[in-house]
Amino acid sequence: MTHQPPQPPAEPAPPRPPTIGELVARISENVSALVKGEIDLAKAKGRRMAATMGVGAGLLGAAGVVALYGLGFLLGAACEALALVLPLWAAKLVVALVLFLLAAVAAYLGKRKIDAARADVPTPDKNLKEDVALLKAAASAGLEKGAEQ
């Protein structure tokens, strides 16, 4: 039996620097993970915002209904107050005419706003055509200038 002297433990090989391909792969993985994390965060924030907005919209709707009932009671009180000096039918007629006058003014103003908005319709195709023509002219001018040199 031959006895061999114990061999010293092998030294680990020095770490080799990563290749460009490995570095690019790591960067790609990190960027991909970062983008995925940002998208997940945006989704979570969007869900929370939608839930909060849903509750807010419901409360605003309820406030509108209650305000409409309040307006009805206020108009009823106006009719009763006018009925002290006029017959009840005349008081209701006066209140109705005032309401129709307010509705006509609001409708007129609303129609003017809609007509103004229609006159300001964007025309992206026209602007894009102008931009393309401008780029073509600039490119051809650049090519001509480069040919001269």
Rank of each mutant, 00 (worst) to 15 (best):
K36H: 01
A83K: 12
A13Q: 12
V24M: 03
V55P: 05
A96C: 12
Q149S: 14
Q7R: 13
G58M: 13
V65N: 09
G54D: 01
G61C: 07
S28W: 09
A116I: 06
L86I: 04
A90C: 05
A104H: 07
L134G: 04
A137F: 06
K113M: 04
P15I: 11
P9H: 02
A63R: 13
V24N: 00
L84W: 06
A117W: 11
P124R: 12
V132P: 03
T19L: 01
L84P: 00
L41K: 15
G72C: 03
L102Q: 13
E29T: 10
A25N: 07
A57L: 15
L88F: 09
A83C: 05
P14H: 04
Q7C: 03
A117Y: 05
P122T: 06
V35S: 00
D131G: 01
L109R: 11
G46P: 00
E11Y: 02
G46N: 10
P5I: 05
P122R: 12
S32G: 08
R16Y: 01
L88N: 10
A138W: 08
P8H: 08
G37A: 06
T52H: 10
K129F: 10
K113Y: 05
P8C: 01
R47M: 00
F100C: 09
A133F: 11
K111G: 06
L41F: 07
A107C: 05
P14T: 08
L75V: 10
T2P: 04
K43F: 02
Q4H: 12
